[in-house]
Simulated assay, not measured.
Amino acid sequence: MNVQRVSTGGVWEKKVGYCRALRTGNFVFVSGTAPVKDGQVVAPGNAYLQARRCFEIVKESLEKLDCPLSAVVRTRMFVTDVSRWEEYGRAHQEFFGDFPPTTAMLGIGSLVDPEMMIEVEVDAIVG
C-alpha cells in the first residue's frame, strides 16, 4: 500500500515520532495541529486567530497531498475554553463553510503549551 507523509518540521513531530498528515489511497488524515509558526505559539489569548492558524496549517498540509479542503469529511477541535466556541467556529466556517464536514468541538483541560487554546484534527476522502 502506498503511503505519502507530510511533515511541517515541527519540533514535536520528530520528538514524538509522527507526521503532520498522511495519505493512503483515497484516505487522508491530519494529526493534531496546534497554532504554531516558526516554533512559537501564534496569538496567545486570541481564540479566533489561533484557530485560523491551525486551519492554515491543515490546508497547506492537505495541498501537499493533492487533497482540497472540499474533501474534508470530519474535523475535531480540542479547545481549552469551550465558552469561546463562537471564535473557533468562525474560523472553522471561513475554511469549511462552502462544504461543511462533520465536526466536534471538545473542551479539554490543557494542551502541550499553556498558551495554546486549540488543536485540530482532520480526516478527508479524496476522489
Rank of each mutant, 00 (worst) to 15 (best):
3 V>C: 11
4 Q>C: 07
5 R>D: 00
7 S>E: 01
9 G>N: 09
10 G>Q: 04
12 W>T: 13
13 E>F: 10
17 G>H: 05
18 Y>N: 10
19 C>M: 02
19 C>Q: 09
20 R>Q: 09
23 R>W: 00
23 R>M: 05
24 T>D: 04
29 F>V: 15
30 V>G: 06
32 G>Y: 10
36 V>P: 01
36 V>W: 00
37 K>C: 01
39 G>Y: 03
40 Q>P: 03
41 V>M: 02
42 V>A: 05
43 A>P: 07
48 Y>C: 08
48 Y>S: 07
49 L>C: 06
50 Q>D: 04
51 A>C: 14
56 E>N: 09
58 V>N: 08
60 E>P: 15
64 K>Y: 01
65 L>H: 13
66 D>W: 00
66 D>V: 06
67 C>S: 10
70 S>N: 05
70 S>I: 09
71 A>E: 00
72 V>H: 12
72 V>G: 08
73 V>M: 02
73 V>R: 12
74 R>I: 05
75 T>D: 03
76 R>S: 08
79 V>I: 07
83 S>R: 10
84 R>D: 05
85 W>A: 14
85 W>L: 09
91 A>Y: 06
92 H>G: 11
92 H>L: 11
93 Q>C: 08
94 E>N: 12
94 E>M: 12
95 F>P: 02
98 D>M: 07
99 F>I: 04
99 F>W: 05
100 P>C: 06
100 P>K: 12
105 M>N: 12
106 L>S: 08
106 L>E: 13
106 L>K: 13
107 G>M: 05
107 G>S: 14
113 D>M: 09
114 P>H: 11
116 M>K: 03
117 M>K: 12
121 E>N: 13
122 V>Y: 03
123 D>N: 13
123 D>G: 15
125 I>T: 14
126 V>P: 15
127 G>M: 00
127 G>D: 06
